[in-house]
């Protein structure tokens, strides 16, 4: 106790207060709204006077046709995203790291990072045009190879892959920068030592570079596990249509329709709560794994 409260650390702890207050007000007080998930919530009656229905919203959800399908869609899309967002940026960062020409390296780094700043509402318009089966550039290419044009945004089989790859295109530059930063932190003497031992480029990559950035990979992978039920609302919402509900309708668009359009706030909150619980389990689980196998710790 005395150690914790030694003179030097008290002012430091005091400085935490505004941040703690913010988190408390905006993250903890709203947690109270979870009770809506167990109510037949009517806004005018408020949280206290709406009817308490226990788990009825959850049983309603289980019996609602389509809940299972949206869950499967969400997992399918988000798992593909999680894997792609580890593999692609790592490889890209490794490749970019080998580039000698500084100017080229920097410009590539900036260009792949650019789409990150555009919103999905704009990108969806661009994607609809690019992927158009009649006059979109992608299908023009396919046609010039004598292939049949594909309606990427209207085809149940293609839609999830379009979602994953377009999101990857938009965001992978961001993760790449994180890995590049991690790469610069590797001690150059390690490379020298490896060279002395006769390691070529490949050997250096596998035995020096990769182990050097494993902590960052594990960190990002652990954090992304919390997103296992987030398949990207604004992206899917702007790109989907009734024709691809079967493979494209995700939990978030489902919640949107339940809550915002049908005003079934109780049910929508129940889905949200379900999402949070699952995310919590996944993030705790992956943290435990990371701790066991990569010796990664937050505390």
């Amino acid at each position: 106790m005395n150690k914790l409260l030694n003179r030097g650390s008290v002012p430091l702890h005091l400085m935490l207060i505004p941040a703690v207050a913010l988190v408390f007000i905006f993250n903890y007080i709203p947690l109270f709204g979870i009770v809506i998930a167990f109510e037949k919530y009517i806004p005018a009656r408020g949280v206290f006077h709406s009817k308490w229905v226990g788990f009825q919203n959850f049983t309603y959800l289980i019996h609602l046709p389509g809940t299972f399908q949206t869950l499967v869609n969400t997992l399918y899309i988000s798992l593909m995203k999680i894997i792609a967002f580890i593999v692609v940026p790592v490889i890209f960062a490794l490749l970019l790291n080998e580039v000698r020409n500084k100017l080229f390296k920097r410009s590539v780094q900036t260009i792949v990072y650019l789409p990150h700043f555009m919103s999905w509402i704009i990108l969806s318009g661009i994607l609809i045009d690019i992927l158009s089966p009649s006059d979109g550039i992608v299908n023009m290419l396919l046609k010039s190879f004598g292939l049949k044009p594909i309606f990427f945004l209207g085809d149940v089989h293609w839609f999830p892959y379009v979602i994953v790859s377009s999101d990857l295109w938009k965001e992978f530059g961001f993760n790449t920068i994180l890995y590049l930063a991690a790469l610069t932190a590797i001690n150059p003497t390690l490379y020298e030592a490896a060279k002395m031992d006769g390691a070529g480029r490949w050997r250096q990559t596998f035995h020096v570079t990769l182990p050097g950035i494993v902590p960052v990979i594990v960190l990002l992978a652990t954090l992304s596990m919390g997103n296992v039920l987030n398949a990207g609302f604004d992206q899917v919402f702007n790109l989907y249509s009734p024709a691809v509900y079967q493979s494209g309708d995700i939990l978030d668009t489902f919640i949107y329709r339940l809550g915002m359009l049908d005003a079934q706030y109780g049910v929508a909150t129940a889905v949200g709560l379900f999402k949070s619980v699952v995310s919590f389990i996944f993030i705790a689980g992956s943290y435990a794994l990371a701790r066991k196998f990569a010796d990664y710790r937050v505390f």
Partner: peptide, 18 residues
């Protein structure tokens, strides 16, 4: 709205031949 979603989905797919 759940019913209408099913309806939209089915009708759109039938029209598109999928």
């Amino acid at each position: 709205s759940t019913l209408q979603k099913l309806e939209d989905e089915t009708f759109t797919k039938i029209i598109m031949g999928s």
